[in-house]
């Protein structure tokens, strides 16, 4: 027992070193903008850059739209599959896992080919259309995470009984989904939402290929043009990811807490 514990700590220590050093290096580098001393100049420069603000705002908006789309698509589907079509679960699960298997760059290529100006649905023809296409693309990227999170949430509640109870009280489908199911899986939905937020905010390939002014392409652009700002940006991006994951674990902990009462 003790030898396995020592071994565990050694492995743990090596892991900590590997995972912390790049973060330390990144942070240290971001402070080096002023010659000879540490300063937050790089951060000031980044935050003062109007392009940072517009691209960041654009990506946050995209992330929120994506979350909304994702929940609207996934929640009713996962609910319906649990309630009525359990035999389709493997198929639906398979489809939701596809974005992890098909390379994003291929999907993006497919979009450009399928929705170009000469197609039946020329989404890339206008700015708004491209925005819509980008949001839909992000929604499909978020499918694996959203579906898994929400389906796990649904597993912990008795969907058929809750549905029948609501129906016997005269509730319609919108009421059942919005007022009965959603509050019960809110934690799961939020987990999926935060994860989606983190993914969309840093996403590069879709935005770059569809030529939208998002945060990911901005980071690449600045990396080719500045020295210390990219590191500052990376620290900011890391902090945002950390915040999203922290919120997820916070949400799941409070969920556990409320569930423990029953």
């Amino acid at each position: 027992m003790t030898s396995s514990r020592i071994w565990s700590w050694v492995a743990f220590g090596l892991g900590v070193a590997y995972f912390l050093l790049p973060l330390v290096g990144m942070f240290e580098f971001s402070l080096r903008a002023r010659r000879g001393e540490y300063s937050f100049d790089a951060y000031a420069s980044v935050l003062g850059d109007p392009q940072f603000r517009t691209t960041f705002a654009y990506s946050v908006t995209m992330a929120l739209v994506t979350i909304l789309l994702g929940v609207l698509i996934v929640l009713p589907t996962a609910f319906w599959v649990r309630l009525r079509m359990p035999r389709l679960r493997p198929l639906v699960e398979f489809i939701t896992l596809l974005p992890l298997v098909i390379p994003v760059v291929v999907i993006a290529f497919g979009y450009i080919r399928l929705y170009n100006t000469s197609s039946i649905l020329p989404l890339t023809g206008s700015v708004m259309g491209t925005n819509v296409l980008l949001a839909l693309g992000y929604a499909s990227l978020s499918l694996p995470y959203m579906y898994r999170a929400i389906d796990t949430g649904l597993r912990t509640i008795d969907v058929p009984t809750l549905t029948e109870a609501a129906q016997s009280l005269g509730a319609g489908w919108a009421t059942i989904l919005g007022r009965v199911i959603l509050p019960n899986v809110l934690g799961a939905v939020l987990s999926g939402a935060f994860l989606t937020f983190a993914i969309v905010l840093g996403e590069y390939v879709f935005a770059a290929l569809l030529n939208r002014p998002a945060f990911g392409p901005y980071m690449v652009w600045i990396s080719g043009n500045r020295a210390y700002e990219p590191a500052a940006l990376a620290v900011i991006a890391f902090a945002i990811t950390w915040a999203c994951m922290g919120l997820i674990s916070l949400v799941s902990r409070t969920q556990k807490h409320t569930r423990a009462r029953s």
């Binding site: 790049p22 973060l23 290096g25 990144m26 240290e28 580098f29 971001s30 994860l195 983190a198 993914i199 840093g202 996403e203 590069y204 990911g216 980071m219 690449v220 990396s223 990219p230 590191a231 940006l233 990376a234 620290v235 991006a237 890391f238 990811t241 994951m245």
Partner: peptide, 13 residues
């Protein structure tokens, strides 16, 4: 989820 651009910066730094 810390892939992409920031990760590359972190390792370069």
């Amino acid at each position: 989820n810390f892939a992409g651009v920031p990760l590359a910066f972190a390792f370069i730094a």
